[in-house]
Amino acid sequence: MLRFFLTFLALQVLLFGIELLGPVQAGLVMPFTGFLADISAFLVRSFDAQVIAYDNVIQSTANGFGVAIAPGCNGVEACIILIAAILAFPAPWKAKLVGLGIGLVAVQAVNLIRIISLFYLGQWNMQWFEFAHLYLWQALIMLDVLVVWLLWVRYLARNNLIRMPASHAA
């Protein structure tokens, strides 16, 4: 347990540090955030044609309201936490890769719901927007990460894939 926690924390700090590097932000995080804005606008246009996306912003052409997907809202930090939790857990690499593939998609799917819900919440009431943006969704995304990780651990346990570190003989 302690080994898992320490590895998890070390990986988290390492990945977070890498994420904040200028070239990573410019070459990966910002394009990805723009991509999220495009996908959000694409999904919203299936029921609301008056929405556009540019850079990291989705905006209503009907009333001008727009939301910018800022750091912390692009789900990258949540993905980093999931990556650290999966990599730190004692399991075969194949199972880790499967967990990462499915898990990251699941986290980003919920993050798209967050972005779209905040986009409409902001058009309805800014106080509720602030409340949901700053507190509610921040924690819900983390709950999403926890549940994805629990489902993955459950899959490992059911298939006897948890590799506990061998104890050293005296």
């Binding site: 988290q12 904040l20 936490i81």
Partner: peptide, 17 residues
């Protein structure tokens, strides 16, 4: 880095741990 870590990661991760 410490600000970003304290704002984006710690508030939600520490309760889980």
């Amino acid at each position: 880095l410490s600000y970003q870590f304290g704002y984006l990661v710690l508030p939600a991760t520490v309760p889980l741990l």
